[in-house]
Simulated scan of single mutants.
Amino acid sequence: MQAIKAQARAEFISALAFLTPKFGLFCAFVVVPFLYTFYLMLFQGGLIGKFRFVGLGNFGALLGDGLLRSTIGNTLLFMAINIPVTVALALGVGILLARQVKFRGVYRSLIYVPSLLSVSATGLVWKIMLDRDAGPIYGFFKHTLGLELSYLQSGSVAIVSVALISAWASVGFYSLIFLAGLNGIPQELYEAGKVDGISPRAAFWHITLPLLKPVLQLVLILTSISAIQVFDIIFVLTQGGPGTSTYTVMWYIYKSVFGGGSVGYAATISVAVMVFSILLAGAIVLITRTREAK
């Protein structure tokens, strides 16, 4: 009995010694910054200078911030374009990749290439392709369809262009998630459907889509959070311009901190974004479960 207790104590000490450094790093780089954000919400002040205690004043400032309202509108427009396009394209590509065709492995590798590119490379490529002077895409639409649009310089078009470029860059990643879900669907169900005489379209709606709902739920949550937190592609392509037409919430937070604004105000917006993200993810899960229950 004594030997068993001694062995258990030794295992506990070994596990504690193994986990303590990682737990310390987790606290230092995750827990402490997370809690410090809530502390900053009570103050106003820039990166250089003293903080001034304002209590809940930052929350009141949110309600009267016209630029923030415009930024939220831009973010919602980005989400309305980016999320459906990304999910639809990723699902379609996933279905195509799941079929038994020649060189399927090559296609799977190629479709994932945009996801491997750095944001800087993606932004540079698309800047060149949409350039008014030498861009092939701009030239195609101009000479073929007669459309002369300033894709990244026009306020009404820039946010749409950025949303579509972001969708292009992430389709490969999400299509592989859908592909994994499609490979988990038993082929016997499709064979039984063929025996019953259902069409491929009916098989998609009555077999594929219902069994793919958990994967679809995951992709919707991931794409929604990614759209809310979009920053990098904005930084590379438009820097929030022209004007403030591509200001998103995360870009506004960045400008508030590094553009001479208040760190506490930026922390308040960050917490509001976190709460909205949690509520949105919960709503997606709730809606999916409700539909499944029906």
Rank of each mutant, 00 (worst) to 15 (best):
P21Q: 13
Y39D: 09
L19K: 03
G49F: 07
N58K: 05
I48E: 04
Y39Q: 14
G49A: 08
L19C: 11
F43K: 05
F29M: 10
F26W: 13
L56K: 03
G57L: 03
A61V: 04
F26H: 08
Y36A: 09
K50Q: 15
G46H: 06
N58A: 07
G55K: 08
L56I: 13
M41K: 02
V31N: 01
Y39V: 15
A61R: 14
Y36E: 12
V54I: 12
G57W: 03
F53W: 15
L25H: 11
G24A: 11
V32I: 15
V54Q: 02
F34E: 08
M41D: 03
F53M: 14
L42W: 01
C27T: 12
G60L: 07
L42R: 09
G57F: 06
G46F: 05
V30R: 00
V32M: 11
V30K: 00
F34Q: 06
F59T: 02
G55T: 07
F18P: 00
A28P: 04
F26A: 12
Y36Q: 11
G45H: 00
G24E: 05
F43G: 00
K50C: 00
F29G: 10
G49Y: 06
C27A: 15
P33S: 01
T37V: 09
F38G: 11
G60H: 02
F38I: 14
G60I: 00
G46P: 02
F29K: 07
G46M: 10
F34V: 08
L42P: 00
G60E: 01
I48Y: 06
F29Y: 14
L40M: 12
P21H: 14
G46S: 13
K50I: 09
P33M: 04
R52S: 10
Y39R: 12
G24W: 10
L56F: 12
F51R: 11
L42S: 10
A61I: 03
F38W: 10
L63M: 10
L25S: 11
L42N: 04
P33K: 04
K50A: 13
N58H: 07
N58V: 03
G57D: 03
G60W: 00
F18M: 13
F26I: 13
F43T: 08
V54H: 06
F26R: 06
G49D: 03
A28G: 09
K50S: 12
Q44P: 01
L19G: 03
G49P: 05
T37Q: 10
F43R: 06
K22F: 10
L35R: 10
L40K: 04
A28I: 15
G24Q: 04
P21V: 14
F43N: 04
M41A: 08
F53T: 07
Y39P: 01
C27R: 01
G46V: 06
G55A: 09
A61W: 12
